[in-house]
């Protein structure tokens, strides 16, 4: 088990390296470097930048160096100092801009993930064991809609209908009095009811997908020989269901967690723009619009690194629950 984990950890290093290169290239794609944009912006706002600051910034981010040198400075700053660069738009270090927002994005994504599993797996099992019942059809239909209509459209329609019916606006994550306030119990309690709508919308398509996958897997497993064996032993239907097919159907799902999280974060990015949530989505969009590339690049990098670790975690989890992987057997 330990060798397996350390092997997987070692595998990650080149992956993370290539991801950082890709992100760096994306940062460099827009014409000009961030310093010129920065100086330009300061000049427009009336304040002049003295030459020494420019030289200092140039040295700090290695902007005189060739591209690979710039990459080296950039990645060294990140790894050694946790310095993700400057946001020209906010005139603040990137880490200060994204801190809270990243936390909220993760919070919404993880809660959605948990809800998806709690809701989708039982429904999937029910649908498979009651195939072609009217509830099965109903779940399939809702699932179809959930899969077909993207979150941002659902968010848009939901905002409209809620406003139309109740006059309430479901956007934002905090009441106005807490918006800029530091974290406190009051703020946390205020956050919870505001999270309901985003969590539901973010989780909807994932739930639909997971119901579908669970149902398919269960139908597959239910027709397998070992189910008949267990039945022939005299095991009761309920016990049989949960001991064998359910466990076997859930195993492959465990390995999908790693992919679900990036999908959730992706979906959250757009939904948060529509719902105007103080998470990473809107700020990433704005950063991209004004080419605040260190900010945008940092988001991309952090989200990708989180995904890599998520995948690792789900693989380890799978190895823990599935003996066939733990003992290196063949999967039949």
């Amino acid at each position: 088990m330990l060798t397996y984990i350390s092997y997987r950890l070692l595998q990650m290093i080149p992956l993370l390296f290539v991801i950082s290169v890709i992100v760096f290239v994306i940062i460099q794609l827009p014409p000009g470097d961030f310093l010129t944009t920065y100086v330009e912006q300061l000049r427009l706002s009336g304040s002049d930048v003295d030459a020494s600051t420019i030289i200092q910034l140039k040295a700090q981010y290695g902007l005189d160096l060739p591209l690979y040198g710039q990459y080296w400075v950039w990645i060294k700053n990140i790894i050694l100092h946790g310095d993700l660069g400057m946001s020209i738009q906010w005139n603040l270090p990137v880490s200060e801009v994204i801190g809270d927002r990243l936390l909220l994005t993760l919070l919404i994504s993880v809660i959605s993930l948990i809800l998806i599993w709690i809701i989708a797996i039982p429904i999937g099992i029910y649908s498979a064991t009651h195939q072609y019942s009217w509830l099965d059809y109903a779940f399939s239909f809702v699932g179809f809609i959930g899969l077909a209509i993207p979150g941002f459209l659902i968010a848009l329609l939901l905002v409209y209908f809620v406003f139309n019916l109740t006059g309430l606006s479901v956007t934002g994550l905090f009441s106005p009095e807490y918006e800029g306030a530091p974290w406190s119990w009051g703020k946390l309690l205020d956050l919870l009811p505001h999270m309901i709508v985003p969590v539901i919308i973010v989780g909807l398509s994932g739930t639909a997908a997971l119901i579908r996958i669970t149902r398919g897997m269960m139908l597959d497993e239910l027709s397998k020989q070992y189910v008949i064996t267990a039945r022939a032993k005299g095991v009761s239907e309920r016990r049989l269901l949960f001991k064998y097919p359910v466990r076997l159907a859930i195993h492959p799902l465990v390995s999908t967690i790693g992919w679900t999280i990036p999908a959730l974060i992706s979906g959250e990015a757009i939904i948060s723009i529509v719902l105007n949530l103080p998470t990473t989505g809107p700020i990433l969009l704005k950063a991209l619009m004004v080419q605040d590339m260190y900010l945008a690049g940092s988001f991309l990098l952090i989200l990708s690194v989180l995904t890599v670790f998520g995948t690792l975690l789900s693989d380890i989890l799978l190895a823990v629950v599935d003996p066939r992987i733990r003992f290196g057997g063949t999967r039949s």
Binding site: P14, L15, V18, I19, I22, I26, L29, P30, P31, W259, P262, A263, I265, S266, G267, A269, I270, L284, L285, L288, M289, Q291, A296, G297, F299, L300, L303, S304, T307, V308, T311
Partner: peptide, 24 residues
């Protein structure tokens, strides 16, 4: 295969957004 693994790791929509924003 490694290339595929790599692309899967980067959240799709933010990547789309970044690349689309980089179009002249």
């Amino acid at each position: 295969q490694r290339l595929i693994d790599l692309l899967i790791c980067i959240p799709t929509i933010p990547l789309w957004m970044a690349l689309a924003a980089a179009l002249p």
